[in-house]
Design a binder for these strands. Structure first.
Length: 572
DNA sequence: GCCGTTTTCGGCCCGACTGTTTTCAGTCG
């Protein structure tokens, strides 16, 4: 049983306990344990009991359940729980505005156990007479079921950002709105986005909120108030606008940026200092307020260094801030090299020279041309002859643009089924840089595919492993790798693992990038551009590195040119 | 069920909005 399956079981337990009416703190404990397991890069099955207890959120009770699951593949506690509470009720929790209390009410009083039965009962007006219910609540349930059936999927960050920027422009046009910013998971640069959160400041919130509802592209109003209004947009996304007066804007921005779990931790920390924190600001024990116009004020008043939004996930960042051991995060301005781009020599749209010029225009100082090799399917990959031809073209461009940029000639070589590369050693040895990657046979058993990737890492000609997990969203989550072995080899052989900036890859993902960094593996953030405008994707790769707490120094793209070329030479 | 700058027991974030109520419960973020 793997980590994801175990995490899912703890979430399942939490849901069932909640419907059962168990105290909320026990439920939160299971949810925290599940999340903690999800972001764990080591396999639980490889950890000792003591190591499991060292994972945040793991105590005796949960550690024992993990052991039982690992050994037997089952959990007695869960089976008993499922005998008490029908597991089909969990589905009902997904209906908007339907929580554990009402689900339990419908189950116990009407005998509803499935979504279909719930819909039937609502249609037959069997719910409106129940305690705490009414005709509006019943109608909401029917609407919620309808929405659920439409299956709103989380959007990839690039698409969400485009839509959010469109709405940001619209919101800026609202009269009486002094400031407005994107908040929520988008401000944290989460790779997928569920809804759009905006925060604003105004001294006349009623008017602003009314104006909001007159904007074009609003399908439906979910709730409306002076502090918070929630709508559904034409993009079929939930959009929320939160408002506070300007002098409270910072605490509002901090709050709506989240994550929820980060806020809970931060508020607990504030309470230890006798301060109650909310989106309105701080209140001390004598009810004296301290207001925060900027979100940095919140952290400053707590005596903490600023915590960047990308780190606000309750993954140890508050403890790190308390101890003043914050990473020196990489930012987009630090990136001066792109070591993985394509041209129309293989499957890209732009010519060699176009890509070089685009890189120069973006201020890059080092660019590696790494077209596909012949063994990669359907990409017009280069064999040795064409690679040789390309080399002379690259040489011309090196001479033409050498003042502005250091050009490297390379390849993205295919890692074959047995871990070897698809070009002869002498051809690879002539190149400035070799990027290697997996595209085919991704579903080999864990041991086999790990050995295959490790073999490529040990190949002295290989400098970078591109998109190491091989994931391509939403088609595949990638290979089942033993990451510890991969990191060990990469560290030992000084091979860089890539964070691929293309939103369909974002691979390494933030969890593995973080543990790679902790392992001491060097990282390369590349765009894998197939067109000149795709250099824009760099911000997504950088966001993964920031969410992974990577120090600037571990990212080779921030290094001075001589250090990059020196690293490449020493590897040959 | 977890956890410790006050704690090995007694805490565990906080406010907004809706719909049901006549002061509040439920849900959400």
């Amino acid at each position: 049983m793997n980590n994801t399956e175990i995490a899912d079981i703890f979430d399942r337990i939490a849901n069932l306990l909640e419907i059962k009416g168990e105290i909320i703190y026990k439920i939160l404990a299971y949810r925290r344990a599940a999340e903690s397991i999800r972001i764990l890069s080591a396999d639980l099955s490889g950890l000792s009991e003591k190591e499991i207890l060292d994972v945040p959120g793991m105590g005796q009770a949960i550690a024992q359940k993990i052991q039982e699951l690992l050994v037997t593949g089952k959990l007695d506690f869960l089976q008993q729980l499922e005998n008490e509470v029908p597991p089909s009720l969990i589905e009902l929790l997904k209906v908007q505005d339907l929580g554990p209390k009402k689900v339990a009410l419908f189950w116990k009083q009407v005998g509803i156990t499935t979504l279909a039965e719930l819909e039937q009962a609502a249609r037959a007006d069997k719910l409106s007479s129940l305690p705490g219910m009414g005709s509006k609540s019943q109608a909401h349930i029917l609407a919620g079921i309808k929405t659920l059936k439409q299956e709103k999927k989380r959007l990839p960050i690039d698409k969400a950002l485009t839509i959010a920027e469109k709405w940001l422009e619209k919101l800026r046009g609202l009269k009486g709105l002094k400031q407005v910013e994107i908040a929520g998971s988008l401000r944290r640069w989460k790779p997928t986005i569920g809804d759009l959160d905006f925060v604003g400041s105004s001294d006349e919130p009623t008017a602003v909120m009314q104006d909001l509802l007159t904007l074009k592209g609003i399908q439906q109003v979910l709730s409306q108030g002076n502090n918070k209004t929630s709508v559904v947009t034409e993009d079929n996304l939930n959009l929320q606008l939160w408002l506070q007066p300007p002098k409270r804007f910072g605490s509002l921005l901090q709050f709506v940026t989240g994550s929820k779990e980060h806020n809970v931790r931060l508020r607990e920390f504030a309470l230890k200092q006798g301060l109650s924190l909310s989106e309105r600001g701080f209140v001390d024990q004598k009810l004296k307020e301290t207001l925060c116009p900027n979100d940095a004020d919140v952290y400053r008043i707590l005596g903490l260094p600023y915590i960047f939004p990308e780190m606000r996930e309750d993954r140890g960042e508050i403890q790190a801030a308390i101890e003043h051991r914050m990473p020196d995060l990489v930012s987009i301005e630090d990136i001066r090299a792109d070591l993985h781009v394509h041209t129309d020599w293989s499957d890209a749209h732009a010519s060699l020279e176009d890509m070089v010029q685009a890189a120069i225009n973006r201020g890059l100082k080092v660019l590696a041309i790494t077209d596909h090799s012949a063994a990669t399917n359907g990409v017009n990959g280069l064999n040795e002859n064409r690679l040789k031809e390309q080399a002379s073209e690259v040489q011309k461009l090196k001479e033409k643009y050498g003042q502005s940029i250091t050009l490297l000639h390379g390849i993205e070589a295919e890692i074959l089924e047995d871990g070897s590369l698809d070009l002869a050693e002498n051809a690879l040895a002539k190149l400035d840089i070799v990027v290697a990657s997996l595209h085919e046979h991704l579903y080999q058993p864990r041991d086999v595919i790990t050995a295959r990737l490790v073999k490529a890492i040990r190949n002295p000609l290989v400098d970078i492993i591109a998109h190491p997990g091989g994931r391509e969203l939403p088609r595949t989550n990638g290979a089942d790798l033993n990451w510890e072995e991969v990191f060990q080899a990469a560290k030992e052989y000084q091979v860089a693992l890539e964070i691929n900036s293309n939103p369909v890859h974002l691979d390494l993902d933030e969890v593995h990038a973080r543990s790679a960094g902790e392992f001491g593996v060097i990282i390369s953030i590349d765009t894998d551009s197939h067109a000149t405008h795709k250099f824009e994707n760099l911000k997504f790769g950088v966001s993964v590195a920031r969410r992974a707490w990577l120090n600037k120094q571990t990212v080779i793209n921030t290094w001075p040119t001589e250090k990059i070329t020196g690293w490449l030479k020493n590897r040959k």
